[in-house]
Amino acid sequence: MNVRYIEKDKLLYFDLTEEIDHHTTEEIRRRADYEIERYMPKRVIFNFNSVSFMDSAGIGMLLGRYKMVKMIGGELGIINVKKNIRKVLEMCGILKLIPIYETV
């Protein structure tokens, strides 16, 4: 996972680089929480461009980050989501909380 922070927009940007399951969410969660606490961003974006697979462990991970970002008064969104991952997101009904942005 690559991390970028854009100070002027208070935007924290995570480029996810792996398949997202119970195994990989441990590390994503740890790293994301560390960076969110460090920057206290207004917006957090997870870029799914390189992600070809996600199961419900990813839903749990996203909801956990959503709660955290919400608590510090920020918002969380995702971008570049492939069709199969959108299907999982839609089924779990989390797009109302965590929108898919067309552009950042």
Partner: peptide, 14 residues
């Protein structure tokens, strides 16, 4: 506590 979504069986079934 493990941030599980509780959607595993729902996903399998659909």
């Amino acid at each position: 506590d493990l941030e599980r979504s509780g959607m595993g069986f729902t996903i399998m079934e659909s």
